[in-house]
């Protein structure tokens, strides 16, 4: 059930990416897609209830640690990519005076 909920989050991000008129909103939609992806991977690592993958004390039936290790990577990269995109947004605003897709694309033609 929960993987289906995560794909709904991803689809909400896709819908926003296709319909948003503001560049900053598009950047946030990419972030939403990324959050859905992270939740999906964490779900796939563990179908039924399990314990944390830290082998101290009595732990049995740990969750798969590989998706967790990969999602650390995704979170850090995602934050830096968002920073890069927002910095580009600032530069676009300084150059075109607007961050609406329509005006920016229309100005360039």
């Amino acid at each position: 059930m929960s993987p289906i909920l995560t794909i709904i989050v991803i689809l909400v991000g896709l819908y926003g990416l296709a319909t948003s008129k503001n560049i900053i909103k598009s950047v946030f939609c990419v972030t939403i897609i990324e959050s859905g992806l992270i939740l999906l991977f964490l779900n796939l690592g563990n179908l039924e209830g399990g314990s944390i993958p830290i082998l101290s004390g009595l732990v049995e039936n740990i969750v798969d640690p590989i998706p967790q290790a990969l999602m650390i990577t995704t979170i850090v990269i995602g934050s830096t990519i968002t920073a890069l995109a927002l910095m580009l947004c600032i530069k676009i605003f300084h150059h075109f005076g607007s961050i609406e897709w329509k005006e920016v694309l229309g100005r360039e033609e």
């Binding site: 796939l44 690592g45 179908l47 993958p53 830290i54 082998l55 101290s56 740990i62 969750v63 798969d64 640690p65 590989i66 967790q68 290790a69 650390i72 990577t73």
Partner: peptide, 27 residues
């Protein structure tokens, strides 16, 4: 869905990497 990976890390992860936290051991 295969449990091969997590079984392998559960048995060998601590002895091969020396890390109690398996996530740290992996990355």
């Amino acid at each position: 869905f295969s449990t091969f990976g997590k079984d392998y890390f559960f048995e060998n992860g601590l002895s091969e990497t020396g890390s109690v936290n398996l996530v740290t051991g992996i990355y």
